[in-house]
Each structure stands twice: as structure tokens, then as C-alpha cells.
Design a protein around this nucleic acid. Structure first.
Lengths: 333, 333
DNA sequence: TTGTACGCGTTATCAG
DNA sequence: CTGATAACGCGTACAA
């Protein structure tokens, strides 16, 4: 079933059918009605491949989401969708694996959909250096900072991860904790590296010597990894009173491990997380965390992209302020 | 940049370029090398639209995921991806909004991608009745039961929601609870309706009269709705000792509300959930719940689809057994 | 082993 | 307002 068939059936030409299907003017009411009837009767849908093949410029904006397991991303995608719902742009969402190369994938989809703009949620410098120079349309990296990556067409909107992490650790420090463990992080992850840096900085500025820094246990951002990391920590002879988890999911895993060990949070150990995922507010104890202003990050990302698209706005790199949500999982000692 | 450009640059014809790009035989090593070099140098990627326009039959299987907020779906998508990774099929994931019409969307994508098979995660009878008869390729509804929907090409793999819910409530009943509240559910949701039915059945079979059934508070499946529903319940004068939440996320919200009210789970109120989401095992208290065998549901769905595709296997409707994961949130009274 | 030419379903540009 | 027709980028007979 093609527009040719519809044309034949209605007695009109394919040109007219195409015009009707694309809501063009200069079509008689009668033709429109006749053709739409036939279309509905057959449940005809345009062949998008053929359409895209022909269409020179789309109004498509691609949003590439890296990793389906980040608890923050679904909310962000929804927010961004809301932003574009009222505009003339069409948003196309593309999820890529945690381990996949988001830049190459992005480029493919952009080409395929003839996209004019690109949003990337999550992403690593490494992949960008390898392939981003081949992407020529305006893009915004959401969640990570790309200020010093040197791409002409890449903006970024993020939280200052180093500062956020520093603030978290300072909070623990001010509450009297001195032996603060770092939970989580994988090599090669920019986010991990920067948050770790914040942990170091806070301790340094507090006059703690490098050799007296709390212990570190790595792991990916998941409940399980948080649980295992904390278990390992508890079994070791390091006596920590405070834990800074690089992600809320890890913090939750950690709290569970502490609880399983017969200890309490914040009674015996204080835990602070990072991200501000929804469940943190419902967990018992409610999770103290560095909350990223997800909504603002999304909105600014969209604004910048649209500005680049419509006003040839220049590339920008913005930090969105975070907040420390003090809830129940940290205690003064 | 098209294959024409590559052809011109390398001195070969577009035919040869196309053959190289598609790994066809009958190409000289030299041509392959020369052409691949040019391709790599330009980072050339085939125009997928043009390719699809030509290609009559694909090996594409579409998986439509309804609702980005269901905590179960990401895991399922990953599982299904793993299943097809070693096969000749290509899996294409399509996320649709909670409120959108998944069937129409599915149909569009299938046409667009020339799909030969379809998996749908989540879905409502209503939308299927409205438009599924236009989908002619083998499909499997994952997570919901379609046994009595009467579609020739639609199989389904799910948990018996009514039985699962019944089991949950029976568990509470056996633990001595008599006034068991039902938390959650929205009108028009098949899943809600069936789980609610289980709640009713269990009480009936236990000899409880309809008028003595515990109270019901509706709401969508989210932390917040669970929290609010429970709050409402606690404020009312109904004294419930057990709560059956239609989804784990609601159960968690409910526990949080109970805790905020100065009561404890399971000390004052017992809570049982449904689904078996990962965080349930890390929550404090650890959540007792009806766990769906997600992995098996996914695997069977894939097997059935492949069977329909390759052996003209017949449509099937299977229930996958659930398990009651007894953890900490329910107490005997 | 390689090149040529046609057609896939659509849109856009004309001329009517 | 409508109809014919040339692209769009690619795969593939078929011919060389």
C-alpha cells in the first residue's frame, strides 16, 4: 500500500495525495475528503524511509540517552519532551548501552533522521574526542561539563560535580566526621573522577593530610555495587563514621548493608549520596544528598539548543547550582 | 557524502562500493581495502532511509516499551537484547508515553522499519481492540495476558496477576491480618483490575463478607502516590493492620508514610508489594513482595516470537509462575 | 571481478 | 487546484 495505490483508488494523482497527507494548501475540500477517507479505510501510513530520503531538512532533534539504568534519565527525558511539545520540533529519543559509543551512535541517528540538533544525556570525553568532530549540528551535552573539550558546536549544561562532591564531604566534615569513605566510581568515567576530586579537595582544605584520607571502594552506580562496597568496607578494619557515595543508588545499597550488619544509619554511620533521585525522599532513613536541579538542567539545555538553532547563538557551558538536601541519613558526632 | 562520492574518489563504481559495504563476496581484496579506507577516512555511514526503501524484507524485531517509569522495564529490555544478540535479528527499541496509544505507534514503527516481529511491554486491551487488527506480523504481549482478546497473531506471556494478588493477600490473612487495605490502581488499567480481583477473591475465600473488605485507596504506580494514599488511609478512622500495594513503588511510598507517622513496618502495619523491583531487596525494611520471574517472562516471550517467525508456531498464551519473596515488611499478629 | 541502469515511495517543481 | 516527472541514496539484476 503506497500513495500510488491511494491515488489510483481515488482517481487523483500521487501529487495530490501527497499534498493532502502533508496538509498542504491548494487542495480542494473534496479531494481532501475523498483521499482521507481512502487513507483511513486502509489505515495507510506514509513510508517514512521514502519521506526522509526525499526531505532535505527536517525539524528533528535527537536526544541520545546513555545507559538505561540511570534513575535520573527517565525524568529528564520526560522534562525535555515537555519542553519541545509545544514547538515545531520533533524529538526523537535514542537509548544506547552503557558501554556503547554514544557519539558514533548519535552521529548515525542524526544522519538517518536528518537531525538539526542534538542533546546527549551522559557521555564520556574519550568518545567525544574520538568522533565528535564529525558531528556538525549544534549539540548540547547534558549532565557533563564540556567546557575544555574544545568543540565549536558543543555546549554543555551540568552540575559542577567537583564542587557538589566537595560540599557533600564538607557537610560530613562539619558534622564532626573525620574518617570519610568514598564509595563508588569506575575508571574512565568523567563523573566519577570529578566527584572524587571534590572528596579530596574538601579533606585537603580541612587540613587532612593525603595519607589520612578515608578509604575508597570503587564500583558502578547500582544498588548492588553499593551494598557490596559497603560490606567490604565494614569487614575491613578501617573505622569510618561517614560515607560519601558517588550516587544515590550506591548510598541506598550501602545503607542496606550497614543495616544488615546490625548497625544503624545515621546512628553508627552517616551516609550522604549524590544525585537526588526520587526514592531518596522515601527511603528509610530519608537520604541526605546533593540534589542536582534536574529540571533546570533540562530547561537550560533546551534553551541553549534552540538559541543555537534559531539565532545562531554561541556555544555555552553552564553550571546549574545544586542543593544540599539535608534529610535523615547524616548525624552530628 | 553518498556512495557515489566514495565511488568517484576511489575510482570504483557505486555497485562495487555497495558490495563492499554490505560484505558481499565477489569483490577483490584490493577494491575492498581501497574502499574501506575511503569510507573510514570520511566516516561515511549509509543512508538508512534509502537502504530501507530498497530492502524488501528486514530482520528487524521491534520492541515497544510503554511507560518509561516502570522500574521493571529497563531490566526486561536488557534481557531481551541479550537474547537476540547472538541471532540474526536486529532489535529496535521504541519507548512510548504512558498515555500514548502503543498499538498505533507499534504499527507505525513496524511499517517504518519493515519489521517482521513485535514485542510489546505493557499495553491495554482498549488500544489493542482499537487498532491491533491492522498489525499482521507475529507479536507477543509481554507482561499482560491476551488469551481472550482473540487476535490470531498475538501471543502473550505474563504473570497471573489475579493469582499473584490473591496469594499476597492470603499471605497477609494467614499471618493473622483481617483488615487489609488495597493501595493503588487506576481505572482502565487491566493490571490494576486483575490484581484488585485477587484481593477480593482471597478475602471471599477466607469467608470475609464483601462489606467487611478492607478499604481501598487508588493511585498510579509511583512512590508519591503510594505515600499520599497511605497518608490518607492513616488519617481515616479505618484501622488496618495489613496493606497490599498493587506495585512495589507504592509499597515503598506507603512504608515511608507509615514511618513518617511515627509508626513502624512491620511493627504496627505490615506491607506487601507486587513486582519484585530491585530496590525492594535493599529497602529498610526489606520489602516482602510477589516477585514476577522477569527473566523467564522475557525468555519465553522471545522463544515464542522466534518460533512463530521460523516455524510458523502457533499463538500461545502463557503464565509464568511468580514467587512470594518473604522478607521483612510483614509480621505475624 | 566490475560497471550500468532501473526502481524502491516520497516530495517538490513545474506546467497546465 | 491538479498532474506529470525529476530527484533523493541505495541495492541488485544483468551485462561486460
Amino acid at each position: 500500500m503506497t500513495i500510488k495505490d491511494i491515488a489510483k483508488e481515488t482517481g487523483y494523482s500521487i501529487g495530490t495525495v501527497s499534498r493532502v497527507l502533508n496538509n498542504h494548501p491548494n487542495v480542494s475540500e473534496k479531494a481532501r475528503k475523498t483521499i482521507m477517507e481512502a487513507v483511513d479505510r486502509h489505515g495507510f501510513i506514509l513510508n517514512v524511509s521514502a519521506k526522509n530520503l526525499k526531505t532535505v531538512q527536517s525539524e528533528n532533534i535527537i536526544i541520545v540517552v546513555k545507559g538505561t539504568f540511570n534513575e535520573l534519565f527517565p525524568v529528564m527525558v520526560q522534562r525535555i519532551q515537555m519542553y519541545f511539545r509545544e514547538t515545531r520540533y520533533t524529538l526523537i529519543t535514542e537509548y544506547v548501552d552503557e558501554e556503547a559509543d554514544e557519539v558514533t551512535r548519535a552521529r548515525q541517528v542524526c544522519l538517518e533522521k536528518k537531525a538539526i540538533g542534538l542533546l546527549i544525556l551522559g557521555g564520556n570525553k574519550e568518545n567525544f574526542e574520538k568522533g565528535f568532530d564529525r558531528i556538525k549540528i549544534p549539540a548540547v551535552l547534558v549532565t557533563n561539563h564540556a567546557g575544555d573539550w574544545g568543540f565549536e558546536n558543543l555546549s554543555s549544561v551540568s552540575t559542577d560535580d567537583t564542587e557538589g562532591a566537595k560540599k557533600a564531604v564538607e557537610f560530613l566534615l562539619k558534622k564532626g566526621h573525620r574518617n570519610i569513605a568514598l564509595l563508588g566510581g569506575t575508571v574512565g568515567s568523567d563523573t566519577s573522577t570529578q566527584r572524587r576530586l571534590g572528596w579530596e579537595k574538601a579533606q585537603e582544605e580541612f587540613g587532612i593530610k593525603k595519607k589520612d584520607f578515608g578509604p575508597c571502594v570503587g564500583g558502578r552506580y547500582s544498588f548492588e555495587a553499593g551494598y557490596e562496597a559497603m560490606k567490604k568496607l565494614l569487614k575491613s578494619d578501617k573505622k569510618v563514621t561517614g560515607v560519601f557515595a558517588l550516587a544515590d543508588v550506591m548510598a541506598i545499597g550501602a545503607i542496606s548493608a550497614i543495616s544488615d550488619a546490625g548497625l544503624s544509619v545515621p546512628g553508627d554511620v552517616s551516609v550522604i549520596g549524590y544525585d537526588g533521585i526520587p526514592i531518596g525522599a522515601y527511603f528509610c532513613p530519608k537520604l541526605t544528598t546533593i540534589r542536582q536541579s534536574i529540571d533546570k538542567i533540562c530547561d537550560r539545555s533546551c534553551e541553549i539548543l534552540v538559541d543555537c538553532l534559531e539565532n545562531e547563538g554561541k556555544t555555552r557551558h553552564e553550571f546549574i547550582p545544586f542543593t544540599l538536601d539535608e534529610r535523615q541519613s547524616v548525624k552530628k558526632i
